[in-house]
Design a binder for these strands. Structure first.
Lengths: 209, 209
DNA sequence: GTCTATAGCCAGATAGAC
DNA sequence: GTCTATCTGGCTATAGAC
């Protein structure tokens, strides 16, 4: 227990860890191509040469950041999707959990989707990653609910896409949506906060008979 | 009529136009920071110096592409949102119209949202742009429908965000969603095609009493 | 492990001939 | 208007002292 705490303290002053934190900040703000190694070094408060000492190249540092970001959120999503709870409860947990996470880490969703769009081959690496969530159980659950007449007819894939869209897009599209709704940062945040429960209600109303 | 056709032909061979088309292709694929002027020149089949002759700098060429992309879709959205048709019909037109457009121009939504996230000041320029849609009429329409008991209680902003999310996200998040659903390009496209009507049905079910 | 200095390359932009 | 050649700066990456 004490060692955990000590490791934590050590890591805070550990250069390798400081670099990864700085790289996260810069890559998530500027993207792979927009980020500069010098800026990451400055952000970490260390020398540029050390970046290469620890991570060899910009590409490898980037991939470390990318997969760490994904590993931060993916297991949480997978755990909810594969848990043994009723469909409506699962939808509530999933949306609330994701929105809470994204509010705490606002750059992560943007970052993942952005880089995935510019590196199509990254998608393959990601799917094969051990923490990539499997949605088969969730799909079965939806199909069963449709068959049993518990919910309206809808393809499991479409319902899943709808759930993802309603939870993720308000973060990805924030600048655009703020423009449309003419809301400032603070008011937009209030709106997002409301979505922790609103999104699930909306979905459930859409599918329940 | 003849002159229109002649202008079209001339523009096809016009270098200024060829540059803009090539720039669109490269910027939308690689983003502002990832794109290279040389690649745009190659794509246009002309010399790199000509890019600067016509557009002065990379930044200015980029902005020309960006605002042209936005002008391509924004007026269509605005027209639907401000038309005088019933709420449910408007939702049907909007979603079907947007999805049809995005299928024909798959890079445009990604491009706009991506660059908006990396250039926060772009958002302001965009909102002041003459073709930026105003959603006041649409918001009033929703508020009235709520007051008259035609639909469930929902804030106009939240409903608008839901509509945008369900229509736009499947294009922005395509690589991720393909990974989750394990669908290939062709099957995913079929799914998107279904959404031309499915999305509106889903929304209407969610809000109607 | 950590630094300074610099190699080596490539990008955006311009000069100037035609 | 269109080209070739080139400037200038900034970037990733490494060499080498400590």
């Amino acid at each position: 227990m004490l060692t955990v705490w000590l490791n934590y303290l050590v890591n805070m002053e550990n250069n390798e860890h400081k670099i990864l934190e700085a790289a996260k900040t810069v890559f998530q703000k500027k993207g792979m191509t927009g980020a500069r190694m010098q800026e990451i070094a400055d952000e970490a408060g260390i020398n540029k040469a050390l970046l290469h000492y620890y991570y060899r190249s910009k590409q490898m540092l980037f991939e470390a950041v990318f997969f760490q970001a994904f590993s931060l959120i993916a297991p949480k999503l997978g755990a909810v999707l594969n848990s043994e709870i009723a469909l409506f409860d699962k939808i509530k947990h999933f949306t609330k959990g994701y929105i809470s996470f994204a509010m705490a880490h606002p750059y992560v969703p943007k970052f993942i989707i952005q880089e995935l769009n510019q590196n199509p081959d990254f998608a393959e690496k990601l799917v094969q990653h051990n923490s990539f969530p499997n949605i088969d159980i969730f799909k079965n659950q939806i199909e069963t609910a449709v068959k049993n007449g518990k919910i309206r007819t809808i393809s499991p894939e479409q319902l899943f896409i709808n759930i993802m869209s309603l939870t993720v897009f308000p973060f990805i599209g924030a600048p655009l949506l703020k423009g449309f709704t003419k809301l400032n940062e603070a008011d937009y945040k209030v709106l997002i906060e409301e979505r922790k429960t609103m999104v699930a209600d909306f979905i459930i109303n859409a599918i329940k008979k």
